[in-house]
């Protein structure tokens, strides 16, 4: 298996005996020009890897916070070229980055072309929350050809029989959805997450990152105890939404990142 900046990151964080902090932001949010500033603030605050969302009109895996951010981004006119521009700007900062996208924008762009453009922008891989492994033949080939990681989401409801079918298709890391539900901040991290990570580990040696519902340092610390990565999305977006201007947004995002990056150290 080829290595990517993302797979290198997990070797590095493992050596430091900590989890990686992964921050999510939709491209084009709050504006096409300002999303790179928010990402720079995340990185300054200590985020290890960036997940760039490709805003989509029908995001069935997302709760209200990300839905609203995606809707705002689409109103700004965000398209594929903006996603790849942001990817290039992000990877220039020296952090690994992936795109998280529903499947239709990839299919529309062209499956091979999408993998190639992502690679050209320095991207490490793609998280595909609605691409089932049964439908993944073309994507497996395209991601292989461009040497990028393909990251699938595993859910608490994924059966024992099915688990290895999904995890064997992943590279870079495996995305463990902490609970049955959509994205968004929660008061506590679901108890299902620890058990799910253990089940994943019995089928794969890949790093496992936990997403859905993590919003503060205490939760990040709890998850870092058993996972290799902690994914935070809605909490960053909320900081931006609650700010009056981009300067305040970046300051608040930087602060949250600092706090979370303390959390992921065991």
């Amino acid at each position: 298996m080829y290595s990517t900046p993302l797979s290198e990151l997990f070797i590095h964080t493992k050596a430091e005996n900590r989890a990686a902090l992964i921050g999510y932001l939709p491209a084009g949010f709050p504006t096409i020009a300002d999303s790179s500033k928010v990402i720079a603030a995340m990185v300054e605050g200590g985020v290890d890897a960036i997940e760039i969302g490709f805003p989509y009109s029908d995001p069935v895996m997302d709760g209200p916070v990300i839905q609203n951010a995606a809707e705002q981004s689409l109103k700004n006119g965000t398209g594929a070229s903006d996603v790849f521009d942001l990817m290039a700007a992000t990877t220039k900062l020296g952090v690994p980055a992936v795109v998280m996208t529903y499947w239709n924008p990839i299919e529309r762009y062209g499956v091979e072309a999408f993998a190639q453009s992502l690679k050209a922008a320095g991207g490490s891989g793609v998280i595909t929350p609605d691409l089932t492994v049964e439908e993944s033949t073309q994507w497996s080939q395209a991601s292989q050809d461009s040497q990028i990681n393909r990251i699938y989401v595993v859910a608490p409801s994924t059966s024992e029989a099915r688990m290895p079918l999904v995890t064997s298709q992943c590279s870079g890391f495996i995305y463990a959805a902490s609970l049955m539900g959509v994205t968004g901040t929660r008061n506590s991290v679901s108890g299902d997450a620890r058990a799910l990570v253990a089940r994943i580990r019995s089928t794969s040696d890949l790093p496992v990152a936990v997403g859905l519902g993590v919003s503060n340092a205490a939760q990040a610390h709890e998850v870092a105890d058993y996972a290799d990565g902690v994914i935070v999305g809605s909490a960053f977006i909320r900081e931006v939404q609650e700010s009056v201007n981009i300067e305040e947004a970046c300051e608040r995002v930087r602060e949250l990142a600092r706090s979370l990056s303390q959390g992921v150290r065991r």
Binding site: V60, D130, T132, E134, A155, S157, T158, A177, M180
Partner: peptide
């Protein structure tokens, strides 16, 4: 046709 859904729904 096929299935393009979150993994959480596959069991159902």
């Amino acid at each position: 046709g096929g299935r393009f859904v979150p993994e959480a729904l596959i069991g159902a």
